[in-house]
């Protein structure tokens, strides 16, 4: 079993058992290789946060030497999680962090990064970054927002003089760049040593990709930089053009 899971696990602490389990379900779909342990509600199923349930969840998540990022919903969930860390063995507490991040968005972002092999610092950073997702990001200089792709087809990946690889792709599948494809793309890009931006959004961020709201027919301008930019951009374009295996 130890080999089955990524080296960073998640614990989701909510006042509600259903909320914790639901968030774990959403995150697990996008990060199937990550151990995600929900710890919601009181022992009797009521609303609240339980020290014992959180302690047990942290113990399970941290087993086999895994690091753990804890996501929390409201006030006392944070306090309970911090109390658990104060009470557990110091060698366990040393590899557990409580993220200051929105519950669901943080869980998804952290899960995808952990699935891609990120270490504790990277997974924690992903969770923290998820906090800005809904403030709306500003497309980068020279990038264009998603536009209707009816005017043209897709371009092959090509590197220009300064090593920047540019390509475009048109979203084919009926449902567009929704959660599952966004996770597929973000996970695929994590394997390459390259920075890829898609209409200004970070291609390695599931939440930024979803926020593009790219529906069927939308054109995506893909810009890659780094040693494996060409491979990364090509992989991205192929996945989009294949419709992510969806209809």
């Amino acid at each position: 079993m130890a080999e089955r899971w990524a080296r960073v696990a998640l614990v989701l602490v909510s006042h509600s058992r259903a909320l914790a389990e639901g968030a774990a379900e959403v995150a697990a779909q996008m990060a199937p290789g990550v151990l995600i342990v929900p710890a919601g509600g009181l022992e009797d199923g009521g609303i609240g946060t339980s020290f014992d349930r959180v302690e047990a969840a942290v113990g399970e998540a941290a087993a086999d030497g895994r690091a753990v990022v804890v996501l929390t919903d409201l006030g006392s969930a944070v306090m309970t999680s911090e109390s658990v860390l104060e009470a557990v063995e110091p060698d366990v507490a040393a590899r557990v962090r409580v993220a200051d991040a929105p519950f669901v968005e943080g869980a998804v972002a952290a899960g995808v990064t952990a699935h891609g092999g990120g270490d504790l610092a990277a997974v924690l950073a992903s969770a923290h970054h998820a906090g800005g997702t809904f403030e709306g990001f500003t497309p980068g200089e020279g990038d264009r927002p998603a536009v209707d792709g009816a005017a043209g087809g897709s371009g092959a990946a090509a590197a220009d003089a300064d090593g920047v690889v540019r390509a475009s792709a048109v979203v084919r599948n009926r449902l567009g760049l929704h959660a599952r494809p966004a996770a597929v793309l973000a996970r695929a890009l994590a394997a390459y040593d390259a920075r890829v931006r898609v209409n200004g959004a970070n291609g390695a961020s599931v939440l930024e990709l979803m926020k593009l709201g790219a529906g069927q027919g939308a054109r995506l301008e893909v810009v890659g930089e780094g040693p494996q930019a060409a491979e990364a951009v090509q992989r991205f374009v192929s996945a989009v053009e294949d419709g992510f295996g969806e209809e």
Partner: peptide
Amino acid sequence: LMSTVGGAAGPLYGT
């Protein structure tokens, strides 16, 4: 107290 008191009072008094 940490295990049995819900809300903020459990972790606060517990700590």
